[in-house]
């Protein structure tokens, strides 16, 4: 698993949504709502996290002709990624909590 993750604000939002329910299966629309990110921002992040080994993606096991709809894809944090995600979010929270607002803003755009 690649632990050198670029912790952008949108990535942090996605991770926070996943960490909030680590054992749950999350699909794109639900993650869009919980992370408040548009689809165009969310899916590249999900793809990067999946490629980095932070997420596992599985397809819903249904017969589309019986269900009358296509199968959806679900995402879940891998067991190895969960503690690291929690740590990164905690670090980020600490940075934004302790640093003066202008410093954080400056770092975030550096």
């Amino acid at each position: 698993m690649n632990t050198e993750l670029r912790m952008t604000v949108p990535v942090a939002r996605v991770l926070a949504a996943l960490v909030a329910d680590p054992t749950g299966d999350h699909y794109g629309m639900a993650l869009m709502q919980s992370s408040e990110l548009p689809s165009g921002t969310l899916y590249p992040i999900l793809a990067r996290l999946t490629e980095a080994g932070w997420l596992e993606k599985r397809w819903e096991e249904i017969d589309p002709s019986v269900a009358g709809r296509p199968a959806r894809a679900y995402y879940r944090l891998t067991p190895a990624a969960l503690p690291i995600a929690r740590q990164r979010l905690a670090e980020l929270h600490e940075q934004t909590r302790t640093a003066p607002a202008h410093t954080v803003a400056k770092e975030a755009t550096a």
């Binding site: 699909y27 794109g28 689809s39 165009g40 921002t41 959806r72």
Partner: peptide, 27 residues
């Protein structure tokens, strides 16, 4: 396939359009 499934599950034309447009406009 994933986007089409999500689009299928999305209620309302406006939300569907926003969902698809955002993907089309993304980097």
């Amino acid at each position: 396939a994933e986007w089409r499934a999500e689009l299928h599950a999305t209620p309302g034309n406006a939300r569907r359009l926003r969902y698809a447009a955002s993907l089309a406009a993304s980097r």
